[in-house]
């Protein structure tokens, strides 16, 4: 049921995909889900290629949305509903929005940007292919014989994911969160340092107005003041 739900929600098709029997395990006798998986994978791959080859910056960001969305659909087809929605939430909803925000701030032009090409295209291609090969090899080697039972309870449901995350993988999880926290603190430290250097003459005025929290942000430097407030909040 959950698979049907996800597929219906994702593709808004009126007919639920046929839940194929899982006995026939092989690439040569594909089921409906496997065909869908392959097709979505192709779309995702194509979108990813366009993302890195297009000369239009904002188009690249929007193709990235397609690629990330396709990835989410793949997660759905693998019954990992929770991961799929988190993927949409974090990557499409926040990361791409941040990306677009940056592109708009830098006045990304409509149309082709002639300087959107990198000089070390071949080196980048080599690195990308090497990384892809390594990942594919690792994943294939690790999960070659693993099959997801579509008829039983969803293997990637929120409950299953949570239990696995907080029972078997607590230590990596916590290590990762500490890493992220470090990155956060590091970013704040870096931004504070450059800020105090650049705006050292205005320390006095800031001290005068910043002492009382009820005073609304100063009119002349809303962004700098806001940044400071955020940093204090984060600290």
């Amino acid at each position: 049921m959950s698979l049907a739900a996800a597929a219906v929600a994702a593709a808004t098709t009126t007919t639920p995909p046929a839940l194929a029997a899982v006995e026939t395990r092989g690439f040569l006798s594909p089921t409906g889900v496997e065909i869908a998986f392959l097709l979505v994978g192709l779309v995702t791959f194509g979108a990813a290629i366009v993302t890195v080859t297009t000369r239009q910056l904002v188009h690249a960001a929007l193709w990235l949305v397609v690629a990330l969305g396709g990835l989410a659909v793949e997660y759905l087809l693998l019954t990992a509903e929770f991961i799929a929605w988190v993927q949409v939430l974090i990557y499409v909803g926040s990361v791409v929005v941040l990306l677009l925000f940056g592109l708009m701030l830098t006045k990304a032009p409509i149309g082709r940007s002639p300087d959107a090409d990198s000089g070390n295209r071949w080196a980048a291609l080599t690195v990308a292919v090497a990384a892809a090969a390594a990942l594919v090899w690792v994943v294939v080697d690790a999960f070659r014989t693993t099959w997801i039972d579509l008829d039983g309870p969803a293997a990637g449901s929120t409950k299953a994911t949570g239990e696995s995350l907080f029972q078997n993988w607590v230590l990596p999880f916590e290590a990762l969160s500490v890493l992220l926290l470090t990155a956060l603190v590091g970013a704040i430290v870096l931004s504070r340092k450059t800020k105090t250097e650049s705006s050292s003459p205005s320390v006095n005025s800031r001290g005068a107005t910043g002492s009382s929290s009820s005073v609304p942000d100063s009119r002349n430097h809303p962004i700098g003041r806001k940044g400071q407030a955020e940093q204090e909040g984060a600290r």
Binding site: A9, E81, W85, L89, V92, S157
Partner: peptide, 10 residues
Amino acid sequence: IDAGIFFVLA
């Protein structure tokens, strides 16, 4: 939907 909140917010 199993992860309804996440679906909706995403």
